[in-house]
Design a binder for these strands. Structure first.
Length: 557
RNA sequence: GCCCUCGUAGCUCAGUGGAUAGAGCAUCCCCCUCCUAAGGGGAGGGUCACAGGUUCAACUCCUGUCGAGGGCGCCA
């Protein structure tokens, strides 16, 4: 509909001002229905270069504008806005589009290449180290990352969801020492407990499982605990497998599936790391100092150079990071998005600098990043900081168990990722309109209730014309539904899942308002089918939108 | 000290350079003989942190100040 209007407008604009470019014409959505369905600022844009009054230009443009069956009227308003009001024919067309394409309405092919094939994009998210249960921050990353994956797929991308974890390095040493200590019944109050050890109760569970010679199956591999209290190699392997399995269970409970898990250790095993290091040395971006090997990341915009090989001969985390991203590139991902907590912000410059230093043609904006800010969990008006199991932080599992998967996902994705977020457990548990998740889901279920009551076949709604369906509520609702595809595209371009959440809340509000104002199942058969086709279309949009957030659309509540 | 993000109603937050800055909660008033009241309608509530600048037009872009959070490890 929007492109239809632009096609009408472009030749007119060019006849008035030949230099104007097609993509410089703005076609906006007015906030208020009083300003029509679409609005352009074209006259105001042209006013200055042509030195003419914008309202005069606007009336000239309207005069030249060809007639279209989809346009009811065109008006000049304010400083020189040109407002378009869609016709009943256009509204009927919009609803038919939705009803004919219930599964695909809102989709587009912006992710396709020139030949019309979906392009590959990889989204890396969560990527928690296997040193403890997932916390709320991981949950936010999981909700945002998975929603982004769904949105990009809806926009025509070929999406791979990937989880990277460090199964080696200093933190895993700490984990091993912590479990070892607990095997010996040394608890964190004991001076003998490792200084940087993990203090949560879950370490005790792992120690007990280890001593009981438990068997863990994770990612297709089976790990047997030796049960030998000082077998550090076995403790290490078992603890990592145990926590990976636990994180998997949390992710399953959160309805998130990854396509690929990548282990940091895999890069050490195939000499990949050395290859990268040698390439960096060969390219002349390294130097030795204090017995360590440094990478000149300042050549690529970093504020200081970084150690890549420590004085003890091992690598810092950032060499495997560079290696991993080279690996992504070599696997054919020309586009990669990393969803991380904002505390990892400093790695952006570093990883990009490392990739540039390799000189293999990777763009300097690779990879892209979506960072999320911290979360405060509130309950009973007070901040919740601890979980029984993890000790020092609130786990994702705590939230899912307490408020459910749908509410958790919605709340964690409903805010702009670069804003800090307050997660109100009491609100998320509420089962009324205070709680946006229930409010939206209820709108969907309510529609189903009416359709059930009606009991007819949906086919009967396919070709109903909407003549006479023009109450304020109806116009607002149709306008909202028509905005869905643009909103989906916007969410994908901005990597902003929260815009979907906001849209759904607004759409549900329009529906509830309409519902309250209108008796749908009236005696007049045609009028009844008109009502039903509109609310069925609304139901489809709500369902498709909820699906982009990974939230269920129940038929009954 | 340097870098990044944020600052919008009492609270939680939206707001692609455009029209009278919007929701929800909280407060107050009203609406079910009717498809789910798990709902709806209305009222009050704002110096968009502050000060400059760019623009026909700034909550939005630029600069500075103040405030909050995060980062500035041979931790990830």
């Amino acid at each position: 509909m929007k492109s239809h209007l632009l096609q009408l407008l472009l030749p007119v604009a060019q006849s008035i001002h030949p230099e104007i470019l097609a993509n410089s014409i703005q076609m906006d959505r007015p906030k208020s229905i009083e300003h029509g369905d679409f609005s352009t600022n074209l006259a105001m844009m042209l006013a200055k270069p042509m030195k003419k009054n914008p309202r005069e230009l606007a009336s000239l443009i309207i005069e030249k504008l060809p007639k279209s069956p989809f346009i009811e009227k065109v008006e000049i308003a304010g400083a020189g806005f040109i407002n378009f009001y869609l016709s009943e024919k256009a509204r009927t067309f919009i609803i038919h589009e939705i009803l004919k394409n219930p599964l695909t309405y809102g989709q587009n092919t912006s992710g396709h290449d020139d030949k019309g094939h979906p392009q590959k994009v990889q989204i890396e998210f969560v990527s928690a180290n296997p040193t403890g249960p997932l916390h709320v921050g991981h949950g936010r990353g999981a909700a945002i990352g998975d929603s982004l994956a769904r949105i990009l797929k809806f926009n025509g991308w070929d999406v791979t969801r990937e989880f990277y974890y460090n199964d080696t390095g200093a933190q895993i040493d700490n984990l091993t020492k912590s479990v070892h200590a607990r095997c010996h019944h040394i608890d964190p109050s004991d001076p003998a407990f490792p200084e940087d050890g993990y203090r949560g109760e879950y370490i005790v569970d792992i120690a007990n499982a280890f001593l009981n010679k438990s068997v863990i199956t994770c990612e297709g591999k089976t790990i047997h605990a030796s049960g030998n209290i000082d077998d550090l190699a076995s403790i290490r392997a078992f603890s990592v497998a145990y926590l990976r399995q636990e994180q998997d269970q949390d992710l399953n409970a959160f309805h998130i599936q990854f396509d690929v898990f990548t282990l940091e250790s895999s890069f050490y095993q195939h000499g990949y790391i050395e290859k990268v290091v040698n390439q960096l040395i060969k390219n002349g971006f390294t130097y030795e100092e204090d017995n360590a090997l440094w990478l000149k990341t300042t050549d690529f915009g970093d504020d200081k150079n970084r150690v890549m090989k420590k004085s003890d001969g091992s690598y810092t985390y950032f060499i495997p990071d560079i290696t991993y991203h080279l690996n992504k590139w070599e696997r054919g991902f020309k586009r990669v998005i990393n969803e991380q907590g904002s505390d990892h912000h400093s790695t952006i410059t570093r990883v990009r600098a490392g990739l540039q230093a390799l000189k293999v043609g990777i763009p300097d904006t690779y990879p892209e990043y979506v960072l999320h800010q911290m979360i405060t969990v509130m309950k009973g008006g007070e901040e919740v900081k601890l979980s029984k199991r993890a000790g020092t932080y609130v786990t994702l599992r705590d939230l899912i168990d307490e408020v459910g998967c749908d509410a958790t996902r919605y709340f964690l994705v409903a805010r702009k990722s670069d804003s800090q977020l307050v997660f109100d457990i009491d609100l998320a548990k509420t089962q009324n309109s205070d709680n946006p998740v229930y409010y939206i889901q209820y709108a969907h279920a309510r529609i189903e209730g009416v359709l059930k009551q009606w009991g007819g076949k949906l086919d009967a709604l396919q070709d109903i014309d909407l003549k006479g369906l023009d109450s304020t509520q109806e116009l607002i609702l149709i306008k909202r539904l028509n905005e869905f595809p643009e909103m989906v595209l916007h969410a994908s371009l901005e990597l902003a899942p929260h815009t979907i959440a906001n849209y759904l809340k607004d759409c549900a509000a329009d529906l509830h308002s309409y519902y309250n104002d209108t008796k749908f199942l009236v005696a007049n058969e045609h009028e009844k089918l008109q009502h039903l086709s509109l609310i069925k279309a609304t139901q489809i949009v709500l369902k498709n939108g909820l699906n982009l957030l990974g939230v269920n659309a129940p038929d009954k509540m």
